[in-house]
Amino acid sequence: MTRIGFLGLGNMGAPMARRLVEAGHDVVVWNRSTARTRPLVAAGARAAATPAAAVADREVVVTMLADPAAVEAVFFGADGAAAHLAPGSLVVEMSTIGRDAVLRLRDSLPAEVRLVDAPVVGSVPQATGGQLRILLGGTPADVEAAGPALAAFGNTRHVGPLGCGAALKLVLNTSTISLFVLVGEALALADQLGLDPAETIEGLGATGMAPFLARIGDRIDDRDVPTYFGLGLAHKDLELALAAADGSGRPPRHLLAGGRDQLAAAVRAGMAGRDVSTVIHLLRGETGR
């Protein structure tokens, strides 16, 4: 049993924290909205009123937060966690925030606190079922120390030094998000050309798009699916990826920028909380609910 503090109980964080409780760990949870802590308390966790209280005397601290600004606020804002981390404790940063933010966090944390970045591949069903893929960046010793807690979430892979997990997660997410936009634009073109949607999808399914279409088939037909990957978070990831690419001296990332702009329009329309697949319907002129 490990003493764990868990910060951030969103769509992914809540089922992940529950898995830690069910695995027998001693878990203290914190969330900005306290209502999100109640099901975890009922399951056996304890709730803390502040990030500082959530990490006191914890061996491992797991963060699953929205963006770099949220990580900064939780660690270094009012009642922040950083000053209350136990010497020798291990922070497992699982948010999608990019390599630069992970390295800034390392520079700002107390030297005696260890850090690994461990973003996940998968969505709510995988978080609930303990089938996530976890991309770990850090020293071999710190990655090994994170193992007992991370075992509750799924399979781990050590991909390099600190920041490499965060970097690889951005690469993977930009590819997936861009595919949603690509499918939306392809179907919009087919609509404009008067093609039968079912025939178009059948044709796309015979191309290299087949695995992706098999995963999202229900989301093409249904505009009101549960939010597994929030559109606003997807927009944030493309912004992070484009920022990371700036100054490289390479050609502009036109595809990423175009996808970012499509998602930005949806965010401005108040759809940040909808699933990222909503962009397909927006591109086809279907506004949904």
Rank of each mutant, 00 (worst) to 15 (best):
Q192T: 14
V27H: 12
R268F: 07
V120W: 09
D26I: 04
R114P: 06
R18G: 01
L20C: 13
R250N: 11
M271R: 15
H281G: 08
R215V: 06
E185R: 13
A17H: 10
G232P: 03
A214L: 13
G259Y: 00
R253H: 12
G247Q: 05
R268Q: 13
R18H: 12
T37Y: 05
G270N: 04
L255H: 07
Y228V: 12
E199W: 13
A17D: 08
G130I: 01
T128F: 02
G288F: 02
L150W: 05
V21T: 10
G273I: 01
P148W: 10
L40I: 00
A45K: 01
I97T: 10
A49E: 05
M16H: 06
A78D: 15
S123T: 12
T2V: 11
A49N: 03
R46N: 00
I201C: 09
I201E: 14
L240I: 10
E202H: 11
G230N: 02
M12N: 10
P140H: 10
A167N: 04
A69F: 05
I220M: 08
R268S: 12
G247P: 11
F153P: 01
G163Y: 01
A190M: 12
F153V: 10
R289M: 05
L162S: 10
A141G: 07
G44M: 00
H254W: 14
R284I: 00
G285Y: 07
A188D: 11
A54E: 02
P252N: 04
E239Y: 05
M209T: 09
M12Y: 11
E112T: 15
L233Q: 15
A56P: 00
P148G: 03
L136H: 08
V279G: 01
N173W: 02
L7W: 08
Q192S: 15
